[in-house]
Amino acid sequence: MTNEDEGRAAAESEQESGTTGTGARVSADGREPSAGSAAGPPSERPDPEAGLATAEYAVATVAAVGFAGLLIAVLKSGTVRGLLENIISSALSI
């Protein structure tokens, strides 16, 4: 086997295993990932969903406050107040 054949065989082996001769991971196109990429074992990668629960709680809290404000505005209206007074007075007169 010539040096060229050995080099080609080593490159094919590296592509199949996903590593370079130094053991570094390579992407599907054969390039080594940059230092800032999410390479490494899954335990070392940042969680892509980290912080989502906090954002969901914030959105739900804002929605609840908005609904409470709307409910207070409706309950303070004269029409609703009259309906509630009629319901309470009819319930107490029974």
Rank of each mutant, 00 (worst) to 15 (best):
L71I: 02
A68H: 07
L92T: 03
I72T: 12
A50E: 12
E49G: 10
A38G: 04
T22R: 11
G82S: 13
T54H: 11
A50W: 06
V59S: 11
A91K: 09
T20F: 02
L52A: 10
A68S: 14
G82L: 13
E6D: 15
A58M: 09
A63Y: 00
R81V: 01
E32Q: 13
A73Q: 08
E49C: 01
V74E: 03
N86A: 15
I88M: 09
G36I: 05
G69H: 02
G23A: 07
E16H: 07
I88V: 13
E32T: 15
E56D: 05
A38K: 06
V62N: 01
S90I: 02
E4K: 14
S43Q: 13
M1G: 14
T22D: 11
T19N: 06
S34F: 04
P42I: 04
I87G: 02
E4L: 14
P48A: 04
A39M: 08
I88R: 11
T79K: 00
G40K: 10
T61K: 14
V26L: 09
S43N: 09
A55L: 14
G78V: 06
L83E: 00
E12R: 13
I72H: 10
E6V: 15
P42E: 08
P48N: 02
S93K: 14
N3K: 08
E14C: 15
P46A: 03
S34W: 05
P46N: 01
S43F: 07
A55Q: 13
M1W: 10
D29M: 00
A28S: 11
E56I: 03
P33E: 05
A60W: 04
D5W: 12
L70M: 10
R8S: 12
E49I: 00
L84H: 03
G78L: 02
E4D: 13
L52N: 11
E12M: 09
R31F: 07
T20S: 08
T61R: 13
D47Q: 05
V59T: 13
A9V: 05
S77F: 02
E32N: 08
A24E: 08
L75F: 09
A10V: 14
A68R: 08
E56W: 07
L92H: 01
T19M: 09
T20A: 02
L71D: 01
E44S: 14
R45K: 11
G21M: 12
S90T: 07
I87A: 12
S89T: 09
I88E: 06
E16T: 09
T19V: 14
L83V: 01
P46Q: 02
V74C: 04
P41E: 12
D47R: 06
M1C: 11
E14W: 15
P42D: 09
G30F: 04
